[in-house]
């Protein structure tokens, strides 16, 4: 049993590319759900829009990444408008229903046979994506510390990714403590009260939906650039629910919640997986097959998260006093 390896893997993944992608998606959910109270259950659609924008523009059309990024932003805003315009005037639950359906529509659309020439069907889009970005990589070689190992390529993505998250977190922090942030938090508590004070809440909800969607889309862009492959079945609703888990783990409506939440979530997931793997190899758990690890780690992590919700329902950064107040 190599505990050092288990820890190393866990730490590497906890601050790795996947954690960055989920952190961005969760930052979007935090903006929408945590601060504004919008139940967007289709965050994965925004991630898919980001990833597929890069895939289509760069691989299918052979154009540059620097064009794909603004197009992904544009597509993300369009998606938010399409989801928001009909639903944001209605009660909160409608947005939840529409967004979860829309995220599945997006996934079925990108894997459809009819659009296979452009979107790659079930195989997705594979190939060099974001060469321009990787050409800027200043690191000469792979990175290896006892507990932290990245390929040269991943290291560059990780550093740029966390730097981006740092900048975006600062912007969100400024946003939520401004009068604008006060309005969206008011909407979360009681929309009609905010309307009665003369605020056009529809506009604020739309802004929050767009902003949160954009954060998810940036996660999708990083996905494509880092993994050089986008496949429709990566974008299942689970992604959305992981993002919600991360938000609740870190503490909803906390600026640093998604960051800490994403790190802890991926640490736990990888740690449990690698630990089980090692334990099975060491012959400690004869009744298990290596293929059982996938489901079991989710069961164990799920139990852990449930305990967290029972014993610390406000999440890591949350304020229990605040949670005790009934939101409505």
């Amino acid at each position: 049993m190599d505990l050092g390896f288990v820890f190393g893997q866990s730490i590497t993944q906890a601050i790795g590319v996947t954690a960055i992608i989920y952190c961005l998606a969760a930052m979007g959910v935090n903006m929408q759900f945590g601060y504004t109270g919008l139940l967007n259950f289709g965050q994965v659609a925004f991630v898919a829009v980001g990833a597929y924008s890069v895939g289509v523009i760069v691989v299918t059309l052979g154009l540059t990444l620097w064009l794909a990024i603004p197009i992904s932003i544009f597509a993300s805003v369009v998606l938010a408008l399409v989801l928001g315009i009909p639903t944001l005037r209605l009660r909160a639950d409608y947005l939840a229903i529409v967004t979860i359906a829309a995220s599945e529509i997006v996934r079925q659309l990108v894997r459809s046979i009819a659009l296979r020439d452009v979107l790659g069907g079930a195989n997705g889009i594979n190939g060099k994506m974001g060469q321009e970005f990787h050409d800027l990589n200043p690191f000469p070689a792979d990175f290896e510390l006892p507990f932290l190992t990245y390929t040269r390529q991943d290291l560059w993505v990780v550093i740029v990714g966390w730097a981006l998250i740092a900048v975006l977190t600062l912007l969100i922090w400024l946003l939520v403590r401004s009068p604008w942030g006060r309005v969206i938090k008011g909407i979360r508590e009681d929309e009609n009260a905010v309307v009665s004070l003369g605020k056009n809440t529809y506009v604020y909800k739309m802004q929050a939906l767009i902003l949160g969607g954009l954060l998810g889309t940036l996660g999708g862009v990083i996905w494509a650039v880092a993994k050089q492959s986008v496949q429709p079945d990566n974008f299942v609703p689970d992604v959305t629910f992981f993002a919600y888990t991360i938000v609740l783990l870190g503490g909803a409506a906390r600026v640093f919640g998604p960051i800490i939440g994403a790190i802890i979530f991926w640490f736990l997931l990888v740690f449990v997986g690698e630990f089980l793997n090692q334990a099975i190899q060491a012959g400690w758990l004869d009744f298990l097959e290596p293929t059982d690890i996938g489901p079991i780690r989710f069961i164990l992590v799920g139990i852990g998260l449930m305990s967290l919700m029972i014993f610390r329902p406000q999440g890591i950064f949350g304020d229990k006093k605040e949670l005790a107040l009934d939101g409505r």
């Binding site: 006060r182 309005v183 938090k185 009681d190 009609n192 605040e322 107040l325 409505r328």
Partner: peptide
């Protein structure tokens, strides 16, 4: 409103500023 709509998780001062 008849059923008071205090914005619970905002401070009293923030309720006012809003």
């Amino acid at each position: 409103f008849q059923l008071t709509k205090a914005l619970s998780r905002l401070t009293v001062l923030d309720n006012m500023r809003l």
